[in-house]
Amino acid sequence: AEMFDGKRAYEPAAFKAAADALSARAGGLTGEFPQGTLGAPSAARPEIDQARPEFEALARHIGRLADALAIKAGNAPPEITADMRMTGPPMDGGSLLGKRPGAAEADPARMPAEHLLHLILQDCTSCHSKFRQKQQ
């Protein structure tokens, strides 16, 4: 995110490494929180078991987005290009803060890398707000 925000110099190899790590980590999210793993050290709230299908759907969605981002990062050019940037209205029919109910899901492979990253961050925030205990 810092590379797209201009807070860190863009480096294709670092972008690829971060995207690959995110993809690998996202693929195992449901396995990290099996049924009944509440509290320390995971900080999972009881809602994770009470709404297991919702949690698993969020985890799968993050995984699909992260996999698409990793593929794009594997072909990353030497500098951030216009086709890597978010432009125009959101591609999922909603805003960056929420989807319009009933909106069709866009194909992650056709989304710009920056948009994929924002959708991943959106899903992570949503999941944490619903299923993670507040850190003291």
Rank of each mutant, 00 (worst) to 15 (best):
E2F: 12
M3K: 05
F4N: 03
G6V: 10
G6S: 04
K7M: 14
R8I: 05
R8G: 07
Y10E: 02
E11K: 09
A13H: 13
A19P: 04
A19H: 00
A19R: 06
L22E: 02
A26L: 08
G27D: 02
G27T: 04
L29S: 05
T30S: 11
G31Q: 09
E32G: 14
E32Q: 14
F33T: 03
G36K: 07
G36H: 00
L38Y: 00
G39D: 10
G39S: 08
A40F: 13
P46K: 06
E47H: 07
I48H: 05
D49M: 06
F55A: 00
E56R: 14
A57V: 07
L58P: 03
R60Q: 15
H61S: 08
R64W: 05
L65T: 03
A66L: 02
D67Y: 15
D67R: 15
K72E: 03
I80W: 07
T81R: 12
A82D: 15
M84L: 10
R85D: 02
M86W: 11
G88V: 03
P90M: 10
M91L: 12
M91D: 08
M91Q: 11
D92M: 09
G93D: 06
G93K: 06
S95N: 14
L97A: 14
K99R: 14
K99N: 12
K99Y: 12
R100F: 15
E105S: 12
P108S: 03
P108K: 00
A109F: 10
R110H: 12
E114P: 05
L116H: 01
L116A: 03
L116S: 03
L116Y: 01
L119Y: 04
I120A: 02
D123S: 13
T125I: 09
S126L: 14
S126R: 15
C127W: 01
H128W: 11
K130R: 15
K130F: 09
K130P: 01
Q135A: 14
Q136L: 15
